Amino acid sequence: MQNWITDDPKHFLRSMKTATQLHAEDFITCTTCEQQPWFSFFFDGTGNNRDIGESWQTHANITRWMTRVFMTMMLCVLTACATGQSGGYVDVSAWGANYTEDYIQDFSIQTVDGKRSGIGGANVAEFSKGGAGGSECCSLIPGVDQTIKIVWRVGGPQDDKSQWKTYSRDVVVIGKMPGDTKDHSVLIVRFFPNHEVEAEVFPGDGSFGPSNPRMDKLFFVGPRVMRHMGE
C-alpha cells in the first residue's frame, strides 16, 4: 500500500504516477482477460438467466468507461502538479532586500507551523549601506498564494547575540509560479519599517535582471531606490 501522507510534493507526484500505472494495468487486464468473471450467472427481473456473453460485454464496457474516468482524473492531478499552479511548491533560493536601518543578522523561511525549509539569508545590510545581503540555495517552499513564516534577527554588527532581537511574521507569498517546477526560482524577502515583511517569487523561466520592473534595484550597480510595503 502506498504511503500517501507526505510533506514531499515530489514523493507525492511519484506515488500518483505509480498508482496511475498500476490501476491502469489492473483495469486493462480485467477488460481483456478471458477468464470467467467473479460472477457466473446474471438474472433479469423475472429470475431468468440472462445471456452471459451479453452481460460480460456490458461489464467490459462499464470497466473501460471507469478506466477512462480514472485516467482522466489522474491526468488532471498530475498536470496540476507539473505546471506549478498556485497552491503548489516551488524550488527557490532566498534573497534579502532591506528597506530599514536595522542590520539583519539572519533570516529563515519556515512553514506556518514552524518547520524549517532550510533556506534563508544572512548579513543583510542597512538600506543606507546597500540594503542587500547573502542568500542561501536551495529548497522547496510553499508557493504563490500560500502562507510562510519569516523569522529574522536584528542586531548591530558588533553586538553580542544576547542583544539581538527576534521577529517573525506570517506572510502570503506573492509573485508568479514558474511554468515548469524544475526551473529554479528566486524568493525575494523584503524588510520594511515597523517590522513588516513581504515575500515575492520570481519564476525561473522569467528574468532576474534589472530590466524586470519588479526586481529590487538594491541587487544591481547603481543608485539605491527606496521601496514601500505593497509596491
Rank of each mutant, 00 (worst) to 15 (best):
V221H: 07
P37Y: 01
V171I: 06
R153Y: 08
N61H: 02
R14W: 15
F107L: 01
V172R: 09
D183F: 00
I174K: 03
G53C: 04
S117V: 02
D205A: 02
D160R: 02
L218R: 06
S15M: 15
K161W: 08
F127A: 03
S139V: 14
L22Y: 13
P142N: 12
W65Y: 05
T72V: 03
G84M: 00
T29C: 14
H23I: 15
P193R: 02
V221M: 06
G230V: 04
T79A: 02
G204V: 06
T100D: 02
T18P: 11
Y167Q: 04
E196P: 15
I150K: 05
K129A: 14
G206W: 05
E196F: 01
C81A: 07
K182S: 04
C137H: 12
G156L: 06
F42Q: 13
G121N: 08
T147L: 15
W38D: 12
T63M: 12
E198N: 01
A125Y: 14
F12A: 13
E136F: 09
T6P: 05
T181N: 03
M177Y: 00
T6N: 13
G130V: 11
G47F: 01
K129L: 14
P210L: 04
L22I: 15
I119Y: 01
G88K: 02
T111E: 11
N98Q: 04
I141K: 09
G84F: 04
A199E: 05
Q36K: 10
M1W: 10
T32P: 13
D113I: 13
M215H: 05
I109F: 03
H11N: 14
I148Y: 10
R116N: 04
W56L: 05
V144E: 14
A97E: 11
F220W: 06
Q158A: 07
G53P: 14
S55V: 07
I119N: 00
S135D: 12
L78H: 08
G179N: 02
Q146T: 12
F42H: 12
V151C: 09
R190G: 06
R169Y: 09
S128F: 12
D51T: 04
C81V: 10
A94F: 09
E54A: 08
T31P: 13
M71L: 11
R227I: 07
R169T: 05
H195S: 01
M16I: 14
F43I: 10
E196V: 02
M74Y: 09
V197C: 03
T166S: 07
F220C: 08
H23G: 15
D44L: 10
M215Q: 06
R190Y: 00
R68E: 09
Q158C: 07
C30E: 12
I28V: 15
P157A: 14
L140K: 13
P157S: 15
R64E: 06
G121D: 09
L78N: 11
K217W: 00
S162E: 07
F202W: 04
F127M: 05
D113W: 12
E196Q: 01
A199G: 00
K129E: 13
